[in-house]
């Protein structure tokens, strides 16, 4: 945003949003087209790649055995991590995950965890000793805005695609058998992000819109229409009325997305 040209452009976008027009001819409540491909990485237990506009995210699921957390000895472990790979944007830098990556991973994590999509009790092998650990790794390959929704959609798609190794317990030891069974899922949460530019709410903000918007709100919904995770972000604010409006907008968007997704 340092050059004058961009500032002029940003101002233009702001003004056209004010009139309800967006750069790519979408209305304020339109979602970009997206395409999801499952099973793109053979070596992963589950995987999915999403293309949302030009945002591209690959999610790989690895399922391994490990120790449970001491406070939940009978539950398997779900771990979500996000990498903003430097090749995806000039603004991403190599190194350990920064705030943006950690927030992204934790929003996706909350959506999946709080919806109860994965029954972690079923991932227990031996109480307090051995459980299955489900690693969900989000790999951002191209940044064109709204990483949150794209990552959440890809993560759930990869989990639907995931298969569990068959095993049996022989003399207190786990023997991995041949073959796989699909990972059971009890819910399929969908997350929708709404941006705010000058008191206008817009669905699925693109990269340039993200530069202009002062805040966003991401909401995850379960299949039965309950809210299971919310996150406000950005240095601006929402009024209570705007939150209520955003909730309705997010809910109707989730409904139309579900029709396309056929989950």
């Amino acid at each position: 945003m340092s050059s004058l040209l961009t500032r002029v452009k940003l101002k233009q976008i702001e003004q056209s949003i004010e009139k309800g027009q967006r750069l790519d001819q979408r209305t304020l409540s339109d979602y970009r087209d997206f395409k999801i491909e499952q099973g793109v990485i053979e070596k992963a237990e589950g995987s999915a790649r999403i293309l949302l506009g030009k945002t591209e995210i690959l999610v790989g699921v690895k399922i391994e055995t490990g120790k449970p957390f001491p406070d939940t000895p009978d539950n398997g472990v779900l771990t979500v991590n996000a990498e903003l790979v430097p090749l995806a944007s000039a603004k991403f830098e190599p190194g350990p995950p920064g705030e943006q990556a950690i927030e992204l991973a934790r929003i996706v994590d909350r959506g999946i965890r709080e919806s109860g999509a994965i029954d972690t009790a079923k991932l227990c092998i031996a109480s307090g000793k051995k459980v299955f650990v489900v690693f969900v790794d989000i790999y951002v390959l191209n940044h064109d805005g709204n990483l949150i929704d794209a990552a959440a959609l890809a993560a759930v798609s990869a989990l639907i695609n995931a298969k569990m190794p068959n095993y049996e317990i022989v003399d207190d030891k786990i023997v991995i058998k041949q073959g796989y069974t699909p990972l059971q899922m009890k819910d399929h949460p969908v997350t929708v992000t709404i941006g705010k530019i000058n008191d206008k709410l817009l669905v699925d903000p693109g990269l340039v819109e993200e530069e202009v918007m002062d805040s966003r709100i991401s909401m995850a919904f379960t299949e039965d229409g309950n809210v299971c995770a919310v996150q406000k972000g950005g240095a601006g604010y929402f009024t209570l009325e705007q939150i209520i409006e955003a909730t309705k907008l997010a809910q109707s968007t989730v409904e139309s997305l579900r029709k396309k997704l056929k989950w």
């Binding site: 919806s115 109860g116 229409g225 809210v227 299971c228 995770a229 919310v230 406000k232 939150i243």
Partner: peptide, 10 residues
């Protein structure tokens, strides 16, 4: 700031 985790109807 607005966050939420858990399950609630709208």
């Amino acid at each position: 700031l607005l966050q939420m985790d858990g399950k609630l109807s709208t």
